[in-house]
């Protein structure tokens, strides 16, 4: 019973998948799906996901929009790399420090990075909230590594604004404040 209460959306999602696979929305399909979902979620152990983060719809929208744009840009970049005449790729593994210690935020970021062509989450340091990201090509520019880190941190900022905990958001706000006060 506790498990069911901990994962209400999972039950909904499984029911939706069931109905989708049957193809038609009939009372029998919905009830059957619900029954299967309840049995599955109730009987199989799942990790508890901490729910300290607050989901902000507007932030999520902005994150999704940015991610979609990033996906297109990165796809084109990788496409260029693939068809270009042979040249040595400058691959790199960099560490990216993620604010806060929300598992959900870490998972979202790791997945977003892995889904974007050209970057891949290699390793996750959960206690310290650090993602190790492999990059296909950082370019000939010596600042390439730092530029990549800045790119990923921009995604991280949007993710914090979308689903981060209140503390992570305050931390972010304080940092931004500092940056605007001391112009470089």
């Amino acid at each position: 019973m506790n498990r069911l209460r901990a994962h209400p959306y999972l039950v909904l999602w499984l029911t939706a998948v069931w109905v989708g696979l049957w193809g038609t929305v009939t009372p029998a399909n919905v009830l059957g799906g619900l029954a299967v979902a309840v049995v599955l979620v109730g009987s199989l152990p799942l990790n508890e996901v901490e729910s300290q983060g607050i989901v902000r719809p507007l932030g999520v929208l902005r994150f999704v929009a940015f991610f979609a744009k990033d996906l297109v840009r990165a796809s084109l970049q990788v496409a260029v790399l693939v068809v270009r005449p042979r040249r040595r790729l400058r691959q790199a593994v960099i560490a990216v420090d993620v604010r806060g210690e929300s598992d959900r935020l870490l998972t979202l970021l790791a997945n977003a990075i892995s889904l974007t062509p050209g970057t891949l989450t290699l390793e996750v340091d959960r206690p310290r909230s650090i993602l190790y990201v492999h990059a296909l090509d950082v370019g000939d520019d010596p600042n390439g590594v730092e530029r990549l880190r800045a790119d990923i941190l921009r995604v991280e900022r949007l993710a914090v604004l979308a689903i981060g905990s209140a503390r992570a958001r305050d931390e972010l706000a304080a940092q931004l404040h500092e940056q605007t006060e001391v112009p470089q």
């Binding site: 040595r88 790729l89 400058r90 691959q91 790199a92 593994v93 960099i94 560490a95 790791a110 997945n111 977003a112 990075i113 892995s114 889904l115 891949l120 989450t121 290699l122 390793e123 190790y132 492999h134 950082v138 390439g144 590594v145």
Partner: peptide, 27 residues
């Protein structure tokens, strides 16, 4: 993304791939 992460991690940990060619390896 999960599958890509798993393959990548396996490849890194098992030492496959040209790890010496990395410009930076902070891991």
């Amino acid at each position: 993304p999960v599958a890509a992460h798993m393959i990548g991690r396996a490849a890194y940990r098992s030492g496959t791939g040209d790890l010496d060619a990395l410009v930076v390896d902070e891991l």
